[in-house]
C-alpha cells in the first residue's frame, strides 16, 4: 500500500533550507552541545561560532538570527547590570574582566546557532519520521508523537483563550501578570488544562479503538534517507570540531 501511495517520493523543499535530514541536524546539535563544554579559548570558540553562524544562515532567515542574537546580547547586558547591582552590596565581586565575561556567551551563541535550524527548519512530519526511524519502543514513541502533535494545537488553543479573554475585557501582558498574577494564571491556565485533559481522554479512546499498542508492526507513511548534503555536513562538522580541539589543546599536544 505504501508503494502504491508513492509517499517516499514526496519532497518538501528543493532548496538548501530543508535539504539536511532532521537526524543530521540532531547529531550536529548533540556534537556542538557536548563540544562547547570543555572548550574555553577564544580562538576555538570563534571557529565554532563562525561555522555555526554559516550553518544557521543556510537554514533560516537572517532576521531571525539577528533577533536571537539580540536576545543573547540582552541576556549578557542583563547579567552585567545584575552584577553591577550586586557590586553595591558586595564590592569584592565588582572586578570584571570583560573578555572572560563574554566567553560563556560565545558558548550560548554557538548553541543558539545549531539549535535554530533544528527547531525552525524541520517539518513536524520529518521529526515524526525520524522518531520512527530510530526504532524507539512504543512507550517512548507514543507519548513523543502525542507531544509533538499537541504543541501546535495547544498554541492554537492559547490564541483562542486569549481572544476570548480580550472579548471579556482581560488583557494578557507583563503588567497583568505582575499586578494580578493569580487571576491572570487562573483565567489562562484552567481552560487550558481542562481542554488538555479532555483531549487526552478523547485521544486515548481513539487510540484504543484503532488498536494502537495491540497491533503488529507499524508501516511507515514516509521514510527519510540521508543524501549528499547530510554526509558533507557531517564530515565538515567533524573536521571543525577537530580543528577547535586542536587549537584548544595545541600546547599540551606540542609539549
Amino acid at each position: 500500500m505504501r508503494v502504491l501511495s508513492g509517499n517516499d517520493l514526496t519532497k518538501y523543499s528543493t532548496g538548501l533550507r530543508c535539504r539536511l535530514d532532521a537526524r543530521t541536524k540532531m547529531v550536529i546539535c548533540l556534537a556542538a552541545s557536548v563540544a562547547v563544554i570543555p572548550l574555553k579559548g577564544i580562538i576555538p570558540l570563534s571557529i565554532l561560532l563562525l561555522a555555526s553562524t554559516i550553518y544557521a544562515l543556510f537554514h533560516i532567515r537572517i532576521r531571525i538570527i539577528f533577533v536571537c542574537w539580540s536576545a543573547v546580547l540582552l541576556m549578557g547586558a542583563t547579567a552585567l547590570l545584575c552584577l553591577k547591582i550586586m557590586t553595591v552590596f558586595w564590592p569584592e565581586i565588582g572586578k570584571v574582566d570583560i573578555f572572560i565575561f563574554f566567553v560563556p556567551f560565545f558558548r550560548v551563541a554557538v548553541l543558539v546557532n545549531v539549535i535554530l535550524p533544528l527547531a525552525l527548519s524541520s517539518h513536524i512530519q520529518d521529526i515524526l519520521t525520524s522518531l520512527k526511524s530510530f526504532c524507539l519502543p512504543l512507550f517512548i514513541y507514543l507519548p513523543g508523537v502525542v507531544m509533538v502533535r499537541f504543541i501546535p494545537s495547544f498554541i492554537n488553543d492559547i490564541k483562542l483563550i486569549s481572544e476570548s479573554l480580550k472579548i471579556r475585557g482581560y488583557r494578557i501582558n507583563p503588567v497583568a501578570f505582575s499586578l494580578h498574577p493569580i487571576r491572570t494564571t487562573r483565567l489562562l491556565f484552567v481552560p487550558m488544562v481542562v481542554r488538555a485533559l479532555r483531549a487526552s481522554d478523547e485521544l486515548s479512546v481513539a487510540a484504543e479503538l484503532k488498536g494502537i499498542g495491540y497491533a503488529g508492526e507499524m508501516t511507515f507513511y514516509r521514510t527519510n534517507k540521508f543524501s549528499y548534503p547530510d554526509y558533507i555536513a557531517g564530515v565538515t562538522a567533524i573536521l571543525l570540531l577537530f580543528a577547535s580541539f586542536l587549537f584548544e589543546y595545541k600546547d599540551a599536544i606540542l609539549s
Binding site: P143, V146, F150, I151, F177, S178, E208, I212
Partner: peptide, 30 residues
C-alpha cells in the same frame, strides 16, 4: 504491556502542556 496506550497519551499530553504553559507565562511576563 506495563504501559497502557491511555497512560502514554496522558504523559505525552502533559509533557506538551507543561512545556507550552511555562513558555507562555515566561514570554507573557516579559
Amino acid at each position: 504491556r506495563y504501559w497502557k496506550p491511555r497512560e502514554l497519551i496522558v504523559i505525552g499530553t502533559f509533557a506538551a502542556l507543561i512545556k507550552i504553559s511555562t513558555m507562555l507565562i515566561a514570554l507573557a511576563g516579559g
